[in-house]
Design a binder for these strands. Structure first.
Length: 339
DNA sequence: AAACAGTGCAACCGCTCTGAC
DNA sequence: TGTCAGAGCGGTTGCACTGTT
């Protein structure tokens, strides 16, 4: 398993290629064809190692290489394939004619990866992770107050709501105040959440126990209100959030953009389980929307993106990319009513 | 205008795989 | 079976460019 001779050991040139070197390499390969890279530099009159020539040819000079910006379709393909193949750049490149593995790798590391991180998505697992988000900006958002969360009760799975309540409580560090607010807003809650079985009002400590008991054990590890760090450390993917836009009910919309992934996902594969109290008719209306349907269908949640936005600027692409995890909100579901 | 920081990408490094001998 | 060279791969680096202060 000998390693290829290093260029500098042989006094060969390294660094950027000059146009003259490119011309020599192109002309030689056009005449003799690629291959036999070890002897190629000498025969072509290049002071380069064969490996450098091969890389220059395969990554840059090859006539079938497509230069320029990645299209949305290419970007979508990369994300999809990466979710399946991981960092198998050559395998991904094989599905993208004209693109090299190096180019795809660079594009992933400089664009897509960062974008996914900003969206709170683990670029390795493609699963949403709250600890990747700027939670402070989320939790201090005026849109994410208790009343708004409570109004979500009619739509959200109670576990998700409970988790959100924990977030708020952890943020405020004041469970007593939280209970007070809950009781002030009890019209939005299931009665059993704020009352004992005999109908008497809950005490703060009782409420804290209920919250912790109703929270899945894999989400919270403490019987009382966890601090923010504990929340972050926990498996928060089951209540995905996005910090990109906190205005006009965007949080809720983003919260509904729960992607499904392949095995090991932190999130429900059937988004309908995320809803609570949504009528069958409303679910049916949602399912008629192709984009929403694509979210509900696992494991190809990304297919809807091309129908969502087809932007070309960086901002549009970020919006578009977040669209990979989004579905169109049907008209029957007016988000403004919930926020 | 200059200094600095951030970004993007070409190229390199070092390792593994594969096939010939 | 072991060795070697060629080829391929993923990770990393260095530098030019751009934006910000």
């Amino acid at each position: 398993m000998g390693r290829s001779p290093c260029c500098d050991k042989n006094g060969l040139k390294k660094g950027p290629w000059t146009p003259e070197e490119d011309t020599k390499l192109i002309q030689y390969i056009q005449t003799h064809g690629p291959g036999n890279w070890r002897t190629l530099p000498k025969n072509a009159g290049l002071q380069r190692c064969g490996k450098s020539c091969r890389l220059r040819w395969t990554n840059y000079l090859r006539p079938d290489i497509k230069r320029g910006r990645f299209s949305f379709e290419e970007e979508e393909t990369i994300i999809q394939l990466h979710s399946v193949l991981g960092n198998k750049w050559s395998a991904i490149a094989a599905r993208l004619p004209g693109r090299t593995d190096n180019e795809i790798k660079n594009y992933w590391n400089t664009h897509i990866r960062k974008r996914l991180l900003r969206m709170g998505i683990d670029p390795v697992t493609h699963a949403p992770r709250l600890d990747l988000l700027d939670l402070s900006s989320i939790l201090t958002s005026p849109q994410l107050n208790l009343s708004n969360l409570l109004r979500l009760q009619t739509l959200l799975n109670p576990e998700a709501l409970t988790l959100a309540l924990n977030l708020v409580a952890a943020n405020s560090g004041n469970p007593d105040g939280l209970l007070q607010k809950l009781q002030e807003n009890q019209t939005f809650l299931n009665p059993h959440q704020l009352q004992n079985q005999d109908g008497t009002a809950l005490q703060p400590s009782q409420f804290a126990n209920i919250v912790s008991q109703e929270t899945p054990s894999n989400l919270l590890t403490t019987p009382s209100f966890p601090n923010q760090d504990q929340c972050i450390q926990g498996n928060m993917g089951q209540f995905p959030m996005n910090s990109t836009d906190h205005s006009n009910g965007q949080i809720f919309q983003e919260n509904l953009t729960t992607p499904t992934t392949t095995s090991g996902s932190l999130i429900p594969t059937d988004l309908s389980s995320f809803f609570y109290g949504v009528s069958d008719q409303m679910k049916a209306d949602m399912s008629e929307n192709s984009s929403f349907d694509s979210v509900l269908s696992s494991p190809a949640p990304l297919n809807s993106a091309s129908t969502y936005i087809n932007g070309s600027t960086e901002d549009e692409r970020e919006s578009l990319c977040s669209g990979l995890l989004r579905f169109d909100i049907p008209e029957c579901l007016d988000l403004a009513d919930f926020m």
